[in-house]
Design a protein around this nucleic acid. Structure first.
Lengths: 160, 160
DNA sequence: TGTAGATAGTTCACGCGTAATGTATCTGGC
DNA sequence: GCCAGATACATTACGCGTGAACTATCTACA
């Protein structure tokens, strides 16, 4: 039997330099694999993960919001938002509207067809959540969230 | 006090649909933040995360290896490797050599300057590992790795 | 041999993340 | 009122991940 799953997965010859390195690589690897699965699901609906993320944020908010606020919730830099929103607009998923009070601000609004698309995706998305993590016990799932939240404490101050 | 850190971070109005969704988003978020930190470190050495990854794999192996094998260890699709290796070759970090027995295969080899570069990076990279995860106890770190490995059990069969 | 299929790598087109820079608009102090 | 700096967004250039289609080479089997 393998003493270490990840080491095996990566065909790594030597053991890890530190438990921290091992945990870090485990995070990266898990993220990649899960992202892949979601990417495939979203593509069936002609969306990329980022596009789906934007739509979800807009639905969660329930009302139009400025570009920047969307970007902040995605850890994403501003320039990326422009092109992302361009494509969503072309696809008819969002509408742009310039704010009358502060003309620098552009408000983004979900279209009805996007809302309907999101609704159709809810079931398969939740199914995938269950498929990916449903085999962990409730305790383990909560424990995992707790550890990741604690891990993130070290990157609190986002330097410019 | 906030009942839920992540919910707060994302300025999410409603609670999560399920503990699974929460854990999934925690993975994505943690990964993004950590990737950012590493990306910044690598950029100081004029490398991207992927490029560093390739160099580390080659050093770990200790001898030249074919493109495909490198790609496999990175969860990465083949086409991306070509461009990645092109840039590494231009920068003088690797050499390409066509195999004489099977002329379809191209072997990749680390140059001496790349080995020296990696060595210079070892200390700062390990420091960052400690900075990011050093505040978890040994038990917590191991627990985190164990949970992530268990989580990945659900994506065993990589479908084509 | 000789031809079909597998395999290694490449090329291309597209979407997205990042940094650097530019443009329009707002706000503050004077 | 006027100008400096902040702010919101757009534009450009580059690297990289993905899928689809292509080339060169090897292997198997008739």
């Amino acid at each position: 039997m393998s003493k270490n799953r990840l080491q095996n997965e990566l065909k790594k010859k030597r053991p890890f330099d530190s438990p921290q390195q091992e945990a870090l690589l485990n995070i990266l690897r898990t993220n990649d694999q899960f992202q892949n699965r979601f990417g495939r699901l979203f593509r069936e609906f002609d969306l990329t993960p980022s596009q789906y993320n934007v739509l979800r944020i807009l639905r969660g908010e329930g009302k139009p919001m400025p570009c920047q606020e969307i970007g902040e919730r995605m850890i994403q830099v501003v320039p990326a938002m422009t092109g992302l929103l361009d494509r969503l607009e072309t696809q008819g998923h969002i509408r742009r509207e310039r704010c009358t009070e502060d003309r620098r601000v552009v408000y983004i609004e979900l279209t009805d067809s996007a809302k309907e698309l999101l609704q159709r995706m809810d079931a398969p998305v939740n199914e995938l959540h269950q498929q990916l993590l449903g085999h962990l016990s409730p305790t383990e799932t909560k424990q995992l969230s707790r550890l990741l939240e604690k891990a993130r404490l070290s990157v609190q101050g986002k330097p410019p």
